[in-house]
């Protein structure tokens, strides 16, 4: 059977704006992916635990509150603690350019800021999966 790409879309942090995350979820679905949408105000622990239970290939997080420098690396740390090294993690939201190198160093594979084309996000995911047949 054809390999389905499973993506967890989550909103860490306290901001209540999930329009962007929903647009991404819908776009990934239309690209043929299975999107597990976990909704607003997820803690890094919830995100990591859900991604393990759901056996996802990708975690896509969106954050607008400015807490990305804390929450994104925290997710990476928890994944490492659980020995998960085969999940692609991408981030998005209102993230200043100068923060991006630090997030990438922490293991976030790509950061998509406002104005990113959903087609670019889809392409990136398809080309950078860590698990392959």
């Amino acid at each position: 059977m054809e390999r389905k790409i499973r993506v967890l879309v989550a909103k860490p942090g306290l901001d209540g704006h999930d329009r962007g995350a929903k647009v991404i979820a819908r776009s990934l679905r239309d690209a043929g992916m299975e999107v597990i949408y976990t909704g607003l105000r997820q803690t890094p622990e919830q995100i990591v635990s859900a991604s393990v239970q759901e056996d996802v290939d990708v975690i896509a997080m969106s954050i607008l509150s400015g807490a990305h420098n804390h929450l994104f690396p925290r997710v990476m740390e928890l994944l490492k603690d659980k020995g998960v090294d085969d999940v692609l993690v991408v981030g998005g939201g209102v993230i200043p350019d100068e923060d991006i190198p630090g997030l990438k160093a922490a293991g976030i594979a790509a950061v998509f800021t406002p104005g990113s084309a959903t087609t670019d996000i889809i392409e990136f995911i398809k080309n950078n999966l860590k698990r392959r047949e």
């Binding site: 054809e2 389905k4 979820a25 819908r26 990934l28 679905r29 239309d30 690209a31 043929g32 992916m33 299975e34 999107v35 597990i36 949408y37 976990t38 909704g39 997820q42 919830q46 859900a50 759901e54």
Partner: peptide, 13 residues
């Protein structure tokens, strides 16, 4: 498309 939004979990997180 074969894609899916699996949204039940949102209520159980």
């Amino acid at each position: 498309t074969g894609g899916a939004i699996l949204g039940d979990r949102i209520r159980m997180q």
